[in-house]
Amino acid sequence: MDRGTVGSAQSGRLRVEVREEGASAVVTPAGELDHHTADLLREPLEGCLDKGFARLVVDCTQLEFCDSTGLNVLLGVRLRAEAAGGGVHLAGMLPAVARVFEITGAEAVFTVHDTVEAALST
């Protein structure tokens, strides 16, 4: 399996790491995703798409909070990924983050997996 670290970015409240897993890019945001930190996630996600990774797995196991701005980042990237023939898969959402997706109905437009491994195997 092709595996390599692509990069990482960090602010005081959000850290984002990106790695390649075969034909997928796995993006791991850790901390709080909100108005102040959204670009820290948007830029690496869009960078993965620009590099030709149409299949993105967002590892949410360390994402503690997500507001509407963070949700909009993910929705926007999902549209670009689908236009390129891929998609955005969310994995391992903590209950507080899953609730935001449930309340807004956004869970219906994403493929959600219990684990990153499950997301990569589909």
Rank of each mutant, 00 (worst) to 15 (best):
A54V: 04
V18Y: 02
T122N: 12
L94M: 15
V16A: 07
R15L: 09
T5K: 08
G105C: 06
G86Y: 02
V58Y: 01
C48M: 15
S8M: 06
Q62L: 15
A119G: 07
M93D: 12
A83C: 01
R80I: 04
T5I: 13
G76A: 05
S8D: 11
F101S: 09
D114S: 15
D34Y: 08
L94P: 12
L41S: 02
G105S: 06
A30P: 09
V16F: 04
F65P: 13
R13D: 15
S11V: 08
T61A: 14
S68T: 14
V116Q: 03
T111P: 00
D39C: 04
A9F: 11
A30K: 13
R78C: 00
L14A: 11
L74S: 01
R13V: 07
E107F: 00
G22L: 08
T61M: 06
P95Q: 12
A98W: 05
V97H: 09
G47T: 09
L33E: 06
L79V: 13
V27P: 05
R80V: 07
D39N: 14
A23R: 14
V6H: 02
Q62F: 09
D59Q: 04
V58C: 03
T104Q: 04
R55A: 05
E107Y: 04
G22M: 09
V26T: 11
L56D: 03
V116T: 09
A54S: 15
V109D: 00
L90M: 10
S8A: 14
A25V: 01
A83H: 06
F110G: 04
E64V: 13
D2V: 12
T111G: 07
L71E: 08
L41G: 03
V97I: 11
F110A: 04
S24A: 15
L14S: 13
R80H: 09
D39L: 14
R42V: 02
V112S: 11
V57K: 07
R3K: 08
L14Y: 10
R3I: 09
R99N: 14
E102T: 14
V116L: 04
V26E: 10
T28L: 11
G92W: 08
G4V: 04
A23P: 07
L40Y: 06
C60L: 05
G85T: 03
R78K: 02
E107Q: 12
A118M: 00
G7Q: 11
D34R: 05
E46Q: 15
E64T: 12
N72D: 13
L79A: 09
Q62R: 15
G87Q: 07
L33M: 05
E43W: 10
A54F: 02
M93F: 11
A98V: 03
G52D: 09
T37W: 03
T104H: 02
V16G: 06
D67E: 10
T115L: 12
A83L: 10
A54T: 08
A9N: 06
S11H: 10
C60F: 01
M1G: 11
L75H: 00
Q10G: 04
L74H: 00
A38D: 12
V77W: 00
L45R: 00
E20T: 12
T37G: 06
Q10Y: 02
T28V: 10
A118F: 00
L33S: 07
L56T: 04
L14D: 13
H89L: 14
V27I: 15
Q62K: 15
E82I: 00
F53Q: 05
E20H: 05
S11W: 08
R78Q: 01
P29C: 07
R55V: 11
C60M: 14
T115Y: 13
K51C: 04
G7E: 11
C60A: 14
